[in-house]
């Protein structure tokens, strides 16, 4: 079981769980939680795309200064994930607030009850 495969499988698993959660769960907070799971899954996926077996972190110190291109993993996905995690946090924070306020104002957190606008 290489690290690469583990990363891919776990990200897909989280993604799957999260997707099912947002499509099937009825409680707003559970949907928000499922979104966080899926978001984590995709972030792991992004990290995985940059993984190269046997290499070190992309910090260029004296030992690898000359051979950087073959000694470090890809720094770009890590940068993307940094941004993505923050965005995920921001969206989750907002989702949670909307979920809590909605359930308070409408008296229920059941998504099935929020079907007044339709057709």
């Amino acid at each position: 079981m290489s690290l690469s495969l583990v990363l891919l499988l776990s990200s897909m698993g989280l993604l799957l769980t999260g997707l099912v959660g947002i499509m099937a769960k009825k409680h707003l907070l559970r949907i928000a939680l499922a979104f966080t799971l899926a978001s984590t899954g995709v972030n792991i996926l992004l990290v995985w795309t940059g993984y190269l077996a046997g290499r070190k972190a992309p910090i260029i110190d004296a030992s690898i200064e000359e051979i950087a291109t073959v000694a470090v993993v890809d720094p770009v996905p890590q940068a993307l994930v940094l941004t993505s995690i923050v965005i995920g946090v921001a969206v989750s924070a907002l989702l949670v607030v909307v979920a809590v306020l909605t359930s308070r104002e409408l008296g229920t957190a059941d998504v099935r009850r929020m079907r007044n606008l339709k057709w």
Binding site: G50, L52, A68, T69, P75, V76
Partner: peptide, 12 residues
């Protein structure tokens, strides 16, 4: 097999 196009540039 190796770093992608832009990653290689960044590393180098």
């Amino acid at each position: 097999q190796g770093l992608g196009r832009i990653a290689e540039h960044y590393a180098a």
